[in-house]
């Protein structure tokens, strides 16, 4: 079976998480920022599955299942909020959504 060391998966997970952080910070479009959050959740899921395999424990997979469920709920509510923002301010740019800014 698979003989790829668990550290390889963790390095890939860290790279994907880092790219997600970069996208989250650099992007201006609110929908793309949501996608960056999904990318980070995916990176964490990969680490969960890799650890589950490393210790041969199923609990990691159960956590991945819950992460996916919460991500789906978050996407539904988040995109509804995006639609409300666009309805109220006619823009997708997060820098134009600055009512709480000093």
């Amino acid at each position: 079976m698979s003989v790829v060391p668990v550290s390889y998966y963790l390095i890939l997970s860290a790279i994907l998480f880092g790219l997600g952080v970069v996208a989250f910070v650099f992007k201006r479009n609110i929908i793309t920022i949501f996608m960056a959050i999904e990318l980070m959740l995916n990176a964490v899921n990969l680490a969960f599955v890799a650890f589950a395999r490393a210790w041969n424990q199923l609990d990691g997979l159960v956590f991945v299942f819950f992460v996916i469920v919460v991500a789906a709920a978050e996407a539904a509510v988040g995109l509804a909020i995006v639609m409300t923002i666009v309805h109220n301010r006619q823009t997708l740019n997060v820098e134009r959504v600055n009512l709480l800014k000093l």
């Binding site: 390889y8 490393a54 424990q57």
Partner: peptide, 23 residues
């Protein structure tokens, strides 16, 4: 990541839980 040992191979764990190739 550099400090972690790259030797820990996947699939050699013998803890309780699932045996065999796939979960």
């Amino acid at each position: 990541l550099g400090r972690s040992k790259a030797g820990a191979a996947i699939g050699t764990g013998s803890g309780p839980g699932v045996s065999g190739a796939a979960f």
